[in-house]
Design a protein around this nucleic acid. Structure first.
Lengths: 109, 109
DNA sequence: GGTTGGTACTTGGTGTTGCCAAGTACCAGT
DNA sequence: ACTGGTACTTGGCAACACCAAGTACCAACC
């Protein structure tokens, strides 16, 4: 996919990752593959890890290190209270935006 | 609205402006007020003008200078062929994204 | 007749965010 | 030993929206 989707992801990817983590705790690599399964085939690992660092620094998640049998230890992320608040805010903002944009879309017109 | 919406607008605002221009040609100040009417009350003038310069340089619009009775001459923008292509691509990308995000939203699930 | 206020566009700098590219580390199977 | 999958890190880059201030033009007002 082109640059267009890249730009559109800005500000959205964080919410998506929080949403994924809200389903159940997960670690970076797992999240990446989950996103790929969702259709975001060209989201790069580095992007996800950087994002995880960011939401960690914002204090939206708790972290636990869990040893893996297949490689380095996993950093398992769990959304905490602040993370849930942020996630809710994300959904309201998103829905608002989506509604407004729908107004502009020449579909039902 | 907060930073969240700001980030979400990235890559979306351009499409919205193209969509507005596709309804009928318009000039910067007009587009800004139109966006405000749509609910984007805190979109700043400077942002819109900068965006217009960008889509002009990308060759997505044609420009005509029209004198105004109330101030400096208006730069009236019209979407051209490339602009329309871009707009269509915007809608498909947007709809795809919206669908995928809907998957993650714990509403109908 | 200078000042205010609305119209209309410009410009330079900033912060956030996702991408890119390369690297580290660990382990299993060949 | 070597490849390949798992798992995380890091440094530099580009795009985009915001911010702040400025220019310019005109009408109306006191």
């Amino acid at each position: 996919m082109g640059k267009q989707q890249t730009e559109m992801l800005k500000g959205v990817l964080e919410g998506m990752v929080l949403a994924i983590l809200a389903e159940h705790p997960a670690y970076g690599y797992e999240i990446t593959t989950r996103l790929r399964d969702l259709g975001f085939t060209d989201i790069v690992e580095g992007t996800v890890y950087a994002l995880l660092v960011r939401i960690e620094q914002k204090g939206l998640v708790d972290i636990e290190k869990v040893p893996s049998e297949k490689g380095p230890p996993r950093k398992v992320y769990t959304v905490n209270r602040d993370g849930n608040d942020q996630l809710e805010e994300f959904w309201t903002t998103w829905n608002l935006l989506a509604d407004r944009i729908a107004t502009l879309q020449p579909k039902g017109n």
